[in-house]
Design a protein around this nucleic acid. Structure first.
Lengths: 340, 340
DNA sequence: AGGTAAATGAGGTGCGTACCTCAAAAATTA
DNA sequence: TAATTTTTGAGGTACGCACCTCATTTACCT
């Protein structure tokens, strides 16, 4: 049988009350008692029964996803994943909420975060760009014992913060290598397209992309990043102009998660079956485009994994456990028509 | 507050005992009572508290992985993953065992399975080839309320059976497309290597590979599958002979999870930086080879995901829940040097 | 109608842990 | 040494549910 606290008390030669004091770090315990209990824990292999703990504490986990107000297809996928994660988690006392707001406005984000009450929320997955205001708000949340996971948005290298998402430099490098290999040593120029270059994600992806192209595919060269600002007309114009100026474009790299606007503009400038195009994120549109060979590859971060990973981290933090790191690394997926 | 069984009883206008009878499908309940309780469940949004259920049932989950006796690096990875899954699961009352035996011997497998006792094991993840004996043993296990997940070994399309693993036809197709694209329209021949062609996995991978090459890359042609039987000398001999007979080999596809033997043989016959080589599974050897460009891509099924997925399915079955399917699909990962 | 079987309710116990109170024992201080 | 503080133990209740018993009610049959 699995040892219980009773067994532990007996093994340690102390009372149940003392075991309880040690396990829950209550005051007024002698160092000797602590040692006795900890030794016994190791000796008999005691493990807290989490089900019983949660029952006794009558604890529920309330987590909140803070997501952008307006978004592309990828955001819809995320919402769907959050939704489908909800049901099975309910029976484990996890309740998941979603708030959407203008994440580009640091004050709005900070205001929301500081309005959260300890008895309403005990963990936040935050998908918003880094700013002094939000950084400060996050620290104050932590002080109130509400943990925060940075979710899919660029602060991978912040120490002391949990992060869920891919390494965007590596993602860009992966895109670069795919294009380089698919082009197989021929010369040419690569068009690089994003919504806005101000996004951390785009900067990092571009960095990784350039590095790989320069190092490994010297016959290829990269054009400056084109910014669509999500505007089809503008996209059409700048892409057309770029193709007019550069007759040797062999590939395009779409760095932002919304592929439709740039891809349609591209289709008016070149034969997409010849042009090598790599885009980001598995959205219905991108999937479709991959199937009919308008896209050649998709670099994706699985939204379902991301959601579940964030929730696991928040749960671990709430339980004062270490998150099981290996499981939480979001992989950079490469999708071709065959492994969709 | 979360509704409890007490609330449910009140809402349904029945006693706690009747609620209990309905929830746990005990006999002697009228259809009317069942309906009243089920209506109330929906009406007040009752959800069983799994922690309390498990506590009251004093239930532990005992699962067993049945794995091959001798194996390659991939098997070591699997074992490591099982090991590291164990610790965090212990606090959730899940105990994971491993048995290794000669899975090629159907009698041995069947014997082991039928020796399992309901009070010792309540779920098995079975990594063994299909055979009438094992199939029968699995059925008899199911009768004794021990559920079985077929684990990473080729029975994907069996109905009524849980399966964890990748679609090997799609995996082969993915390898084919990578090689085709990396070769970029040039002509040539592809060497295909495996340990033994009798493995279901190899057959399916070959099938998917051939299909893609024939349909999409008509300038390429595939040679008959070479079998190493895991023997370096034999590998050396047959590969050397193949390269002697075919001067236009541009690529090699290593279908079996152990990459070392074929790759070393290949290195004696061609310049690996020119030859396009795709192999299976992320092992330390394959990773290394990918980094220094002896390999061009790895097709992988994440062993950690596979292990956790199998455990989740077994847990769901034990709880008489439906496994949360979307989460359990093992992805076909493509690894390049940049997204390792 | 009486007899029987089926359905229901009331009430209890236990699962492993958290959290509380109170009294007693031990250690520390004056 | 006495007074005080700290540490410890004994014992209880609660969490939400499963599972059990027994008495009572209801429905069904002849």
């Amino acid at each position: 049988m699995r040892p219980t606290t009773k067994d532990l008390a007996k093994a340690a030669g102390v009372s149940l009350a003392t075991v309880d004091r040690v396990l829950n770090e209550r005051p007024n315990v002698s160092a000797r008692a602590v040692r006795k209990v900890q030794d016994a824990i190791k000796r008999i292999g005691f493990e807290r029964n989490l089900a019983a703990v949660n029952l006794a504490r009558n604890r529920v986990y309330r987590f909140l996803f803070v997501l952008p107000e307006r978004g592309d297809q990828y955001l819809s996928e995320l919402l769907a994943e959050i939704d489908s994660a909800r049901a099975p988690l309910k029976s484990e006392l996890v309740e998941v909420g979603v708030v959407r707001l203008d994440v580009e406005d640091p004050h709005a984000v900070a205001n929301l975060l500081s309005s959260l009450q300890t008895d309403e929320v005990n963990g936040v997955a935050l998908m918003a760009p880094e700013s002094p205001q939000t950084r400060d708000a996050v620290l104050r949340l932590n002080e109130r014992d509400i943990s925060v996971v940075h979710f899919l948005s660029g602060q991978a290298n912040l120490e002391h913060h949990d992060f869920v998402g891919i390494d965007n430099i590596a993602a860009g490098a992966t895109a670069g290598r795919l294009i380089g290999r698919f082009n197989a040593g021929r010369g040419g120029t690569i068009a690089i397209i994003t919504e806005t270059i101000h996004a951390q994600d785009s900067l990092k992806r571009r960095l990784g992309f350039d590095r790989v192209i320069h190092q490994n595919f010297p016959t290829l060269s990269c054009l400056p990043t084109l910014e669509t600002h999500g505007d089809p007309a503008r996209a059409e114009r700048i892409i057309k102009q770029t193709f007019a100026n550069h007759r040797d474009i062999v590939a395009a790299y779409i760095m932002s998660p919304e592929g439709r606007v740039p891809l349609e503009a591209l289709s008016h400038c070149a034969d997409l079956t010849d042009l090598i195009v790599v885009a980001h994120e598995r959205t219905p549109f991108n999937e479709e485009a991959l199937r009919d060979e308008r896209l050649d590859a998709i670099i994706a971060q699985n939204p379902g994994h991301a959601v579940r990973s964030a929730l696991r981290i928040l749960r671990a933090r709430r339980d004062r456990r270490q998150p099981f790191a290996a499981q939480e690394k979001i992989r950079i997926e490469i999708l071709l028509a065959d492994n969709l």
